[in-house]
C-alpha cells in the first residue's frame, strides 16, 4: 500500500488542474498514469501532500497528426503510440521506444509525458523523442512556454518544470526527407526491462543524398537522456557510409558517460553503443539497395 496522508484531486480541465496546483502549492504533485509515482509512494520515496491527477484532462489527451508532424498530448499512453500505425511508419524510433516500455499493462496507463516528467536517465520514450527534435509545451498557469526536449531535463529525476507548471504537449516535426531511424534498448531479457543502455539513431538524407540531419541519442549514458552532438556532426553533410556510421558510433561510445553498476558494466554499455548505432541504421534500411551508390 502506498504512503498515506495525501489528498487526491481529479480535475477535468487544464484550467482546473493548473488552478489546483497553484492553490495546493509545492506539496502537490501532478500525476498521470501513476506507474512511477505509485511505486515511489509505496517505497516511501515520495510523500506528497496532494496528488493532482491529469488523467481526466481532455486537453492533455490525444495524438494529433498533421502534415508538419505529430503532437502528442502529454497524457497519451505508450500503448496509444504502440498501436498507431502512422506513428510506426513516420516515427519508427519513437514507436519502438514506446512499444518496449514495461509490459502492456504498464503501457496501457503510463503516459509519454509522465515518462518525460519522471526524467529517469533510462527513459525509453525520451530517447525516441530526442531523435525527432521534440519540443515540450509547458503550461505555466499564466500562459505557456516551449522548451526543446534537449533542455527539458535538469538532472536525474529533475526537469525544468517549475512549481504549478504542467507539461501539456510534445511536438515533433516530420523529418524532411528520406529517413532511417530506430531505437534499441539493451536488456537481458526481452520484456519488462529497463535498458542497461538505450540507443537511438536517426539519419535524414537531403536532396543531394548527403546526410542533412543526424541524431544520436542515448539513455543511461549520463544524468539524463541525451544527444551526442559530436557523433551527429560526424555524419552530417557527408554521404551515409558504413564507415561514417561506425565512426559516429565510436564517437558516441567515447562521449557517453556510462558507469559501472550492478546493473551493467561501463565497458559493455560502451561497446553496445559501438555495435548498435550502425546496426540500427542497417535495420532501418539505410544501406538497402544503396550499396552501389556508396
Amino acid at each position: 500500500m502506498a504512503a498515506k496522508g495525501f489528498s487526491y484531486h481529479r480535475p477535468t480541465s487544464l484550467g482546473e488542474a493548473l488552478a489546483l496546483l497553484a492553490d495546493l502549492g509545492p506539496g502537490a504533485v501532478p500525476v498521470a498514469g501513476a506507474t512511477d509515482v505509485w511505486v515511489n509512494l509505496r517505497a516511501g520515496k515520495l510523500a506528497p501532500e496532494a496528488l493532482v491527477s491529469l488523467r481526466n484532462v481532455p486537453e492533455l489527451s490525444g495524438l494529433r497528426k498533421t502534415e508538419h508532424g505529430l503532437v502528442l498530448g502529454a497524457c497519451v499512453t505508450h500503448a496509444e503510440v504502440e498501436d498507431d500505425l502512422w506513428v510506426a511508419e513516420h516515427f519508427p524510433a519513437l514507436h519502438q521506444a514506446c512499444s518496449g516500455v514495461g509490459s502492456r499493462q504498464v503501457r496501457n496507463v503510463a503516459t509519454v509525458g509522465g515518462n518525460l516528467c519522471n526524467a529517469a536517465p533510462s527513459a525509453d520514450s525520451a530517447v525516441g523523442l530526442l531523435l525527432y527534435d521534440a519540443e515540450c509545451r509547458i503550461e505555466t498557469g499564466t500562459g505557456h512556454r516551449d522548451v526543446p526536449l534537449t533542455e527539458f531535463f535538469a538532472g536525474p529525476n529533475r526537469t525544468v518544470l517549475g512549481p504549478g507548471e504542467v507539461l501539456a504537449e510534445i511536438r515533433l516535426p516530420l523529418p524532411a526527407g528520406r529517413t532511417f531511424a530506430g531505437y534499441r534498448k539493451i536488456t537481458r531479457r526481452k520484456a519488462v526491462e529497463l535498458p542497461m543502455i538505450g540507443i537511438g539513431a536517426r539519419v535524414t538524407l537531403g536532396t543531394d543524398g548527403r546526410v542533412a540531419e543526424a541524431r544520436i541519442a542515448l539513455g543511461v549514458a549520463g544524468p539524463t537522456p541525451l544527444r551526442v552532438r559530436k557523433a551527429e556532426e560526424r555524419l552530417e553533410g557527408e554521404p551515409l557510409t558504413r564507415e561514417a556510421a561506425a565512426e559516429a558510433a565510436e564517437i558516441a561510445a567515447q562521449e557517453a558517460k556510462v558507469r559501472d553498476s550492478w546493473r551493467g558494466e561501463a565497458w559493455y554499455r560502451r561497446e553496445m553503443i559501438r555495435v548498435w548505432i550502425p546496426r540500427i541504421l542497417d535495420e532501418a534500411g539505410a544501406w538497402e539497395g544503396r550499396e552501389g551508390e556508396l
Partner: peptide, 10 residues
C-alpha cells in the same frame, strides 16, 4: 525488474 526470470516473450 532486476531479478530476471524469463517472460512469455523469451
Amino acid at each position: 525488474r532486476d531479478y530476471k526470470i524469463l517472460t512469455a516473450k523469451d
